[in-house]
């Protein structure tokens, strides 16, 4: 029984190893796969992310110029970040809260000279 005694006494005197969670939070490590975000400004709607996505969480529509992510399906593996030819999908280390809404990125028509006619919008539906 006494094997644990030293450990218990040491613990009582030491500062706790836990933290008061919602109030005090640890910063995630820099490489943590927290959530992905898409910057639709540079998206060319090439569908590569859609094709490679293992759980089919991304749906890209070339006609409507939309990029839809279902965060509930997304497994945050980072495959889309790897395959994106324009590097517009980025991985962020912080976790996003669980959500049922889908994230839709819409981009308006191009005027042919690189300027957008309509402003880009991120909609959560």
């Amino acid at each position: 029984m006494l094997e644990m005694l030293g450990n218990v006494i040491k613990n009582t005197l030491a500062t706790p190893a836990t933290r008061r969670f919602p109030a005090v939070q640890r910063e995630p490590f820099p490489g943590t796969r927290g959530h992905i975000r898409m910057d639709s400004d540079c998206c060319i709607f090439c569908k590569r992310c859609e094709i490679h996505c293992p759980p089919d969480a991304i749906v890209v529509d070339r006609q409507d110029r939309t990029w839809i992510l279902d965060p509930n399906r997304c497994i945050v593996c980072g495959k889309c970040v790897e395959v994106c030819p324009k590097d517009c999908i980025t991985m962020f280390p912080h976790h996003r809260a669980v959500t049922r809404v889908r994230i839709r990125e819409i981009r308006g028509e191009d005027d042919g000279r690189g300027r957008r006619l309509e402003p880009m919008a991120t909609k959560e539906e």
Binding site: F29, G31, R33, V76, C77, G78
Partner: peptide, 18 residues
């Protein structure tokens, strides 16, 4: 937790290393 921290720092995930 220390091991999990090491895993998170090296792979980016805690349980699913990917």
């Amino acid at each position: 937790e220390i091991i999990m921290d090491v895993i998170e720092a090296t792979t980016g995930g805690r349980m699913i290393f990917c």
